[in-house]
């Protein structure tokens, strides 16, 4: 199938892109295009204009300081995987990205695109929520920061206003011994997960002080599980209890890959794997 007709605008800089975006409600930002183009090629979306932000060089930068890693929206997954500093400061990103699709898609797919698209089955939004990354948006009124926990509003719904563009994502690093976990269950390598988990544990003298869990592929957005985290601080891992608690935390939603029961089950299994790995 061929895409419906649209016009194309190559933004010179951020202000230029925002300017076009705010005048046209049907304009869509073209980042890496790895999710957008399939929807166009299947005629599932019909934008008036694609605003290509691919030539805005400031969006392609990776900045690292002592406490943060700032990923420009247009950094490709491959670029991040090949960045030495990212691999040193936040090695789990490499592990996560190696499960995102396949090499040719990772060469073109962008960090900002994945965060902004907000696919509930995608890995990166869940990771952003886990570490409560700061999502930096630029609009006609300037820049604002939304915490990842506040960013995802529903199925493919985010806090981005129609005149705004996601410009970068800021991840905290050096988090006082916080240990990170990532795992997912897919039927084939690189597919969207039937269920996936990013989690973290902070320990003091081998006692768990803080546990965070964010699931993907389970509901309409990255799913936090506060009740389960609380349970795990007080109790040993127990499959049935965790599955029940998770069901209280998350409204598991079936999709083409698996049923809600399956997702709840796999989520409980993943929590078990995490507690085993990080404890």
């Amino acid at each position: 199938m061929k895409s419906p007709a649209f016009s194309y605008y190559q933004a010179k800089d951020l202000a230029d892109a925002i300017n076009v975006k705010k005048t046209d409600d049907d304009a869509v930002i073209l980042a890496g295009g790895q999710s957008l183009l399939p929807t166009l090629n299947m005629r599932l979306s019909n934008p008036s204009v694609l605003i290509d932000i691919g030539n805005i060089s400031e969006l392609k930068e990776i900045k690292v300081d002592d406490s943060n890693l700032i990923m420009g929206a247009m950094c490709s997954h491959s670029q991040i995987m090949n960045n030495k500093e990212v691999n040193e400061k936040l090695p789990i990103l490499n592990k996560i990205l190696s499960q995102v699709a396949h090499p040719a898609v990772r060469n073109k797919g962008t960090h900002g695109g994945s965060i902004a698209y907000g696919d509930p089955a995608a890995e990166l939004p869940a990771f952003a929520v886990l570490v409560n990354a700061e999502i930096i948006l630029s609009g006609s009124d300037g820049e604002r920061i939304v915490s990842a926990k506040e960013f995802y509003k529903g199925l493919f719904e985010t806090a981005i206003n129609s005149d705004e563009i996601l410009t970068s994502v800021k991840y905290p690093i050096n988090r006082n011994g916080m240990k990170l976990f990532f795992d997912e269950v897919t039927r084939r390598h690189g597919d969207y997960a039937m269920a996936g988990l990013v989690g973290s544990i902070k320990q003091n003298n081998k006692i768990n002080e803080e546990i965070n869990l964010v699931f993907f592929g389970t509901g309409d957005r990255p799913n936090e599980a506060p009740k389960t985290c609380e349970y795990l601080l007080k109790n040993e891992y127990n499959y049935s209890d965790i599955k029940n608690t998770l069901k209280n935390d998350i409204d598991f939603a079936s999709d083409i890959s698996s049923s809600s029961d399956m997702k709840a089950h796999l989520s409980a299994i993943l929590v078990g794997r995490m507690m085993k790995e990080l404890n």
Partner: peptide, 16 residues
């Protein structure tokens, strides 16, 4: 037909 596309209709891939 709810999975009539290459992302949702699974065929064997090299890794598995």
């Amino acid at each position: 037909l709810t999975n009539g596309n290459m992302a949702d209709y699974l065929v064997p891939m090299a890794y598995e």
